[in-house]
């Protein structure tokens, strides 16, 4: 069994203003760009022309590393949850409901704003 100090995590590659991540297995004590034990996939954060964020995963090796006892960092757990490999991570749910709440609030504001505008217009017309 491997110590839990070894983790599956993101390592930032890419350059300034252009994040790109490798999904790697490495000890937590190591710096993120140090040579890892193994690369398990990639994650392109920036949406491409089709508005997709591309993720590649070596599921076979991920199974192996989880089986051996490696820890999984939250962002990677979220990715794996969205990929359907693990159950969906609570943080994903949290982000979703917060975004939804924000969007609803915005929509409500917009609605009130538009109703105000329309009412003022009506007043102006009358």
């Amino acid at each position: 069994m491997v110590s839990r100090r070894i983790g599956i995590r993101l390592a930032r590659f890419g350059c300034a203003n252009r994040p790109f991540y490798h999904i790697v297995v490495a000890p937590k004590s190591r710096r993120h760009q140090d040579p890892p034990f193994e690369q398990l996939g990639t994650y392109d954060v920036m949406p491409n022309e089709h508005k997709e964020r591309l993720v590649s995963l070596n599921l076979e090796r991920i199974r192996y590393w989880i089986g051996i006892g490696a820890h999984i960092s939250d962002p990677v757990a979220e990715l794996l949850g969205l990929a359907g490999f693990l159950p969906i991570h609570p943080l994903s749910y949290m982000k979703a409901w917060r975004n939804r709440r924000k969007a609803n609030a915005q929509a409500g504001e917009n609605q009130t704003l538009s109703s105000e505008i329309s009412s003022t217009r009506e007043e102006g017309l009358s």
Binding site: R63, Y64, I66, G67, I68, G69, L86, P87
Partner: peptide
């Protein structure tokens, strides 16, 4: 709970 179950499964698979 789910994750632990999965880990156990992968562990068995590995063994």
């Amino acid at each position: 709970t789910h994750f632990r179950a999965l880990r156990h499964f992968f562990q068995c698979e590995y063994e």
